[in-house]
Amino acid sequence: MSTHVLGPAEAIPEGEGRAFVVGGEQVAVFRLRGGALRAVQAQCPHRGGPLADGLVDAEVVVCPLHGYAYELADGCARSGAGALLVYDVEADPAGQLVVRLPGRRVEEVGGAAQARLEDAFAEPVA
């Protein structure tokens, strides 16, 4: 497990995502309305769409290319695509974004319903 500091959380506008290279991996970090942080792989498993450009709400990110939706908490697809890698992300007391590698993937089996079973994913602290 390695820890990476990506700069101030404020650099991501509320409700949007930005992509980062973290230890050689591409990570899309989202700052949700209300302040919660989420991090998933930056490329859509469908056809490589840029997920950081997607629309988000408290639960999902919608890929801008073909509209596949993924659960931000565990990476599961709501539309039958493969699951995303998810990363632990939080803001440290100084307001810096901290992302931890490696990411984890829910087995690519059961879509959203299945994924909610896995409570292995701790709620990221914002």
Binding site: E10, A11, I12, P13, E16, G17, R18, A19, F20, V21, Q26, A28, A42, Q43, G48, P50, L51, A52, D53
Partner: peptide, 13 residues
């Protein structure tokens, strides 16, 4: 309009 409005979203590609 926002920080990083035009930053690439696929940084390594």
């Amino acid at each position: 309009a926002t920080p990083g409005q035009f930053r690439t979203s696929l940084p390594l590609v």
